[in-house]
């Protein structure tokens, strides 16, 4: 699934879009628990989360996650955006709940991790 399609489905504001055309996502993972994200061994993953802090970006960097959607209208800070840009991580902000965002993406063909 194209990142632009994710953004459109979730009415999400694109915050860091420099990687917009560079890759697709195939699998979605919804979690506010970064400890769980760090246990994944999955490529082409979209992280859907309401955990909006610097460590979310760090976690994505370590876990090779290149795209994050912040749900529940959470806003990325300036420091988060700078770190995401440094590591080529695309970030979006959606006004939807995690449940709604996940449902829409699942319905559109994004696969679950397990």
């Amino acid at each position: 699934m194209k990142i632009s399609e994710v953004s459109k489905l979730l009415c999400a504001k694109m915050i860091c879009d420099h990687q917009l055309h560079a890759f697709d996502v195939e699998i979605g993972y919804s979690s506010d628990l970064m400890s769980d994200v760090l246990t994944l061994d999955t490529d082409n993953l979209l992280l859907i989360t309401g955990m909006c802090n610097l460590q979310t970006i760090r976690t994505a960097e370590m876990a090779d996650v290149h795209a994050i959607v912040f749900v529940r209208n959470k806003k990325a800070s300036t420091e988060m955006i700078a770190l995401a840009k440094e590591h080529g991580i695309c970030i979006m902000e959606s006004p939807f709940t995690m449940f709604k965002a996940s449902g829409l993406l699942f319905n559109a063909g994004l696969k679950p991790v397990y």
């Binding site: 970064m34 400890s35 955990m51 802090n53 976690t59």
Partner: peptide
């Protein structure tokens, strides 16, 4: 509250 502390760190 930072998304850690679930008892997954050392096993991971």
């Amino acid at each position: 509250e930072m998304g850690f502390g679930a008892g997954m760190g050392l096993p991971n």
